[in-house]
Write a protein that binds this DNA or RNA. Structure first.
Lengths: 117, 117
DNA sequence: GCCACATATGCCGATATAGGTATATGATGG
DNA sequence: CCATCATATACCTATATCGGCATATGTGGC
């Protein structure tokens, strides 16, 4: 057996740095393929192939617009990754043992009108 | 070029379901290899090879104990994944604007003693 | 010293990848 | 209709994987 298909999983799809880049660009707003080609500096067929993988896992959606195909992110398939990784968060964030405390902190931060990051 | 090495990244290392399983088991506490073999029902060389990959990325650490080798999780290399994925969280959690609601949910989940997967 | 135990490594086969180049599909405009 | 733009697909090569089996390394006990 070889490695699991890249289209098997969001885990596998997102393991490719280029695919992550594509998602990052699309996070700023939907884009036709050529924009992605320009933004990433990759060969057009490469981008199309990566998009194919992302589409297969549901991470992007295509919309037809004349002769262009406009792609848009759909982050939902990332949720399993988020949930799985989150279970290990305490491993690097030691203040995380007291979850209640952390929640208070976050809440306070939010109320102070301070966004994310 | 083939796919990036599994040892290139936590992203790649964790794309393998078995490797995730290993980390899940180890999350409950350090274990010698044979325990993992029993817990996962895999062939011993397989487990050793997966551990090798996880070690290469720093996701596990080995401690010598007599003729056993006790492995332990180190979640820190997962942080980049967490951070990256988190940026897309709003994409699937539309109620994310109401942070307080989310916090309640998290608290509830935690109190229910929710494991991984 | 020798044998059983615990783990790691070597070699093999099948597979599917990423990237490249050339080409097919498909829509638009003249 | 034909040429052009936008995107997708086909074919190719090199590579590294996962899993299986056999074996090496290394430790402890008798």
């Amino acid at each position: 057996m070889a490695r699991a298909a890249t289209t098997a999983d969001a885990f596998n799809a997102v393991a490719e740095p280029r695919r992550r880049q594509i998602l990052e660009v699309l996070a700023a707003g939907e884009r036709p393929v050529n924009d992605l080609v320009a933004a990433l500096g990759l060969a057009q067929p490469l981008v199309s192939k990566h998009l194919r993988v992302l589409r297969a896992v549901g991470l992007v959606r295509a919309r037809e617009a004349g002769r262009q195909r406009v792609y848009e992110v759909n982050g939902e398939p990332l949720k399993p990754i988020h949930d799985w990784v989150k279970a290990f968060e305490k491993s690097w964030s030691h203040r995380f043992e007291r979850l209640d405390v952390v929640l208070e902190e976050m809440k306070a931060m939010e109320e102070r009108g301070h966004g994310s990051e």
